[in-house]
Computed example of a mutant assay.
Amino acid sequence: MNILKWVLRGLPFAYMVAIFIMSSLPADHFVKLPDSQVDHTIKESLHLIEFAILYVLLVLAMLTRRNAFTPALNIACAVFAGLYGISDEIHQSFYAYRSASWFDLVKDFTGISVCFYFIRGALFKEKFTRLGKVLERV
């Protein structure tokens, strides 16, 4: 269990490095679908989950610290994920083959907010009891 705890604590940092690297590369560096409209739609929709995943990884990392996860720390995880989303958009603005937009930030914050709603409900509002049980076992 000790190894899992350290893996969960390291995942947010590894994921942030991966986001930074991928933001430095052209959007079609890894995958380019034959239909350019489908390719564009899928890649744009990834903004809804990209920083939501970061928020969830941060929560999981914090949950490894027994009895230390509070509503304030939950908010801090969401804010940090949002700030990293902002920094990612700024980072992308320095590359001619990437773009940065306010709409991308709205998608980033929407994904974070949806996950925040469920995690807050599961851990602090006695909703989503199955999710709460899973999170409490971390």
Rank of each mutant, 00 (worst) to 15 (best):
F80S: 14
G82Y: 04
W102D: 13
L4M: 13
V134I: 15
Q92E: 12
F13Y: 14
S45V: 00
R130L: 10
S113T: 12
F30L: 14
D108K: 00
L131G: 02
M16D: 08
D88W: 00
R98W: 15
Q37K: 05
Y97F: 15
A14H: 14
S101Q: 04
L83M: 15
G82H: 08
F69L: 04
A18C: 09
I119V: 14
F116S: 01
P34W: 00
E126K: 10
D104T: 12
D104V: 03
I119M: 05
A72K: 10
G121P: 08
H91I: 11
D104R: 06
R98M: 11
F118P: 05
D39W: 06
Y117Q: 02
P71N: 03
S24Y: 03
Q92N: 11
K32S: 06
F118W: 13
A96K: 09
G121R: 05
E44V: 06
M16H: 07
S45A: 07
A122F: 00
L33A: 10
Q37F: 15
G85W: 02
Y15I: 08
L123E: 00
V106M: 07
R9Y: 10
A72S: 12
K127V: 01
D35E: 00
L11I: 15
E89D: 13
S45M: 11
F20N: 14
L25W: 15
I75T: 12
R66D: 11
G10T: 08
G121C: 04
G10S: 14
P26Q: 12
D88R: 03
S99M: 14
N2W: 08
V56Q: 06
L46V: 04
K127T: 01
S113R: 01
F94M: 14
L54E: 12
R137M: 00
E89W: 00
G111Y: 02
A52P: 08
I86K: 11
Y55W: 00
L135M: 08
L58P: 10
L4H: 12
M22W: 15
G85C: 02
F103V: 13
V134R: 11
T64G: 01
I19M: 01
V7L: 10
E126Y: 05
L54P: 14
A100C: 09
L54Q: 13
E50R: 04
S45G: 02
M1V: 00
P12V: 02
F13K: 13
L60N: 08
I90M: 07
A76P: 01
A100T: 14
A52I: 03
L4G: 08
E50Q: 07
A96W: 13
L48I: 00
W6H: 08
S113N: 01
N2I: 06
V31S: 10
N74S: 10
D39L: 01
V17W: 10
C115R: 07
R66I: 00
P26V: 03
G82V: 04
S36H: 05
R130H: 05
F118D: 04
L135G: 03
H40M: 07
R9P: 03
A81M: 04
I90A: 10
Q37Y: 13
V59S: 02
T110Y: 06
A76W: 04
